[in-house]
Design a protein around this nucleic acid. Structure first.
Length: 420
RNA sequence: GGAGACGUGGCUGAGUGGUCGAAGGCGCUGCUUUCGAAAAGCAGUAUGCUCGAAAGGGUAUCGAGGGUUCAAAUCCCUCCGUCUCCGCCA
């Protein structure tokens, strides 16, 4: 959500934002509703003031006749503006609905484009792994070592179901523990948050009402979140927080995604599954663009550092306007090299929002002048399993069929090579 | 799942239809006093919307939403949450 005053003063910026993000949004319609809203507020406030003026006379009036006269007058006054009061209620509802649809303004450095094919590579690390033997996919390797059971996974969970076994499960636990330790050393506070959440938290983080189709919903009107970001931001809803020093959290949760728009995409393997696990970086900071940018770069750097420590070749792309969410100002994706596909695939996604989320969630802090302000929020993947297993296993396959374990993971896995 | 109690400002705690955004206390801020501090005294101390250049004005908000009424913290309904007891389960 943006500040209505800002929207009113800069309608052309919102228009550009919608265009750049390839989102349909009619600013003029919002402004018309806002004009009516303010008109009605002025009118109703004035009538209410009149009413309050008379109302205050009632208790001091002991004369029954006079008293009844005042009440009669007030009855007429009330009947007079009941209509406007009812309309105001409706207009405010309409206004709030539209306000939730206003896109945040993307940064000028965000490249133009309509989808992920227009994302721009900004740097690479490492070189795509070279093999002097036929490369196997993670599916073949993992099935060979009984690290995964897709057949029984779909038996119990349906389409995209999978069960991690043996080294597949061990590697996963190792990655979680390693990543948690990594970020705790960076000063992040660990959180283990729920995924089964109420609607408000999704509206607050910007996932609803836009992406209703992507979420699983329960019969109790709760939703399953696709990222720990939702609970980690929602936990501060309506709070006054301290961001003298940016608050940094490393947050773990199961994640659920319906993948409604991706039927037929990545149907095999661990690339795109309905249920997975993720450690997420969540940061709340003061309302300063410079601070947001600096922290955005920092959290991206940390993720890169983690990838480097795992010895995984990757590149970083700046997401184009059309690939940004409603609330995102700017986003970098980290994509790891996947040998079997001979291309980079997304493993991390780092974005900042300015006060888009905190305004919806009402998360504020006091600045040095003592004024209440909406904080800024950012988030980035720390590690997402099982997806990260794909580049991890494929890039580390050996000619003898075994899988090399990256050095940093060895103490967590308990071996330097997986061979049976 | 059953029975009951409760939800008021930063905290505590009054208020059961009318001059109540809300007494008192605590805390906090400023001033007075003091060499300084404490204590004391005085003053101030919520947030949103809206009008205004500002000063300031208006209005809304007592868990949330709806209703009754000229008027709701107070009455009615729904929901959410907390606590106590019982039951059930890990």
């Amino acid at each position: 959500m943006l500040d209505i005053k800002f929207i009113r003063e800069n309608p052309e910026l919102i228009e550009h934002a919608a265009k750049k993000k390839h989102i349909n949004f009619d600013v003029k319609k919002l402004l018309r509703v806002d004009d009516r809203r303010r008109e009605l507020i002025a009118l109703v406030d004035q009538k209410r003031a009149e009413q309050a003026h008379f109302s205050r006379k009632v208790p001091g009036t002991t004369d029954t006749q006079e008293r009844e006269q005042i009440i009669k007058e007030m009855q007429m006054l009330k009947a007079d503006f009941q209509k406007e009061e009812d309309e105001l209620k409706k207009v405010i509802q309409k206004w709030q609905k539209l306000m939730l649809e206003v896109p945040n303004v993307p940064d000028v450095t965000v490249p133009e484009g309509k989808d992920d094919s227009d994302n721009v590579e900004i740097r690479t690390w490492g070189t795509p792994t070279q093999f002097d033997f036929p490369v196997k996919s993670h599916i073949d390797i993992m099935e060979q070592f009984d690290m995964v059971d897709f057949k029984r996974g779909t038996k119990v969970a349906g389409f995209r179901g999978h069960i991690l076994k043996n080294a597949g499960a061990k590697l996963t636990f190792a990655l979680w523990q390693y990543t948690l330790d990594f970020f705790v050393k960076k000063g992040y506070t660990p959180l283990l948050v729920p995924s089964l959440l109420n609607r408000e938290t999704f509206v607050g983080t910007g996932y609803l009402p836009q992406s209703e189709d992507d979420l699983y919903k329960t019969q109790d009107e709760q939703y399953l979140s696709g990222t720990a970001e939702v609970a980690s931001m929602g936990m501060f809803m309506d709070d006054e927080i301290d961001v003298t020093v940016a608050q940094k959290y490393i947050s773990f949760s199961p994640c659920f995604r319906r993948e409604a728009g991706s039927h037929g995409k990545d149907t095999r393997g661990l690339m795109r599954v309905h249920e997975f696990f993720k450690l997420e970086q969540i940061v709340l900071c003061e309302a300063s663009h410079e601070t947001s940018v600096a922290l955005h770069e920092e959290m991206t750097m940390y993720a890169e550092e983690l990838m480097q420590s795992l010895e995984l070749p990757y590149h970083v792309v700046a997401n184009c306007g059309g690939d940004l969410g409603l609330g995102q100002v700017k986003k970098y994706d980290i994509e790891a090299w996947v040998p079997s596909e001979e291309q980079y695939r997304e493993t991390h996604s780092a974005s900042y929002f300015h006060d888009f989320q905190t305004r919806r969630l009402n998360i504020r802090y006091r600045d040095t002048e003592g004024r209440l302000r909406f904080a800024h929020s950012l988030n980035n993947t720390a590690i997402a399993t099982p997806r990260i297993l794909i580049p991890l296993i494929e890039n580390n396959q050996q000619i003898d069929g075994s899988i090399k374990v990256p050095e940093v993971l060895q103490k967590y896995v308990g071996t330097d090579v997986i061979r049976d």
